[in-house]
């Protein structure tokens, strides 16, 4: 079971969190033209990366904040965690 550092609450066990997918996916803006391909990519297409991956988790049974977790998908090493509004770079 992973041990995730919530930027708001500190180190917590994985069972307090729920996984939310790729954190680098950006929703197209509202009321803007989106091509079929772009929309398709946004809704369905995800890379299944081996290695470093920036992903979303929600601290469901804690502060309920969505956070960003940089994790190695092969080794589960967690490099850093960020608040929702913190820059990925």
């Amino acid at each position: 079971m992973l041990h995730i550092k919530c930027p708001h609450c500190g180190m917590r066990s994985q069972n307090e969190f729920s996984y939310g997918g790729d954190a680098t996916v950006k929703r197209p803006e509202l009321n803007k033209e989106v091509t079929d391909q772009d929309w398709n990519n946004f809704v369905y297409n995800r890379k299944s990366l081996r290695g470093k991956h920036l992903e979303l988790w929600q601290h469901l049974s804690g502060c309920r904040q969505w956070i960003k977790v940089e994790r190695d998908t092969a080794t589960h090493e967690i490099f850093r965690t960020l608040k929702a509004n913190e820059d990925n770079s």
């Binding site: 729920s18 939310g20 929703r27 979303l56 929600q58 469901l60 309920r64 904040q65 969505w66 929702a84 509004n85």
Partner: peptide
């Protein structure tokens, strides 16, 4: 609730 929190915290902060 999670759905609303997702959009409020990440998409339309």
């Amino acid at each position: 609730l999670s759905h609303l929190e997702y959009y409020l915290q990440l998409v339309w902060p």
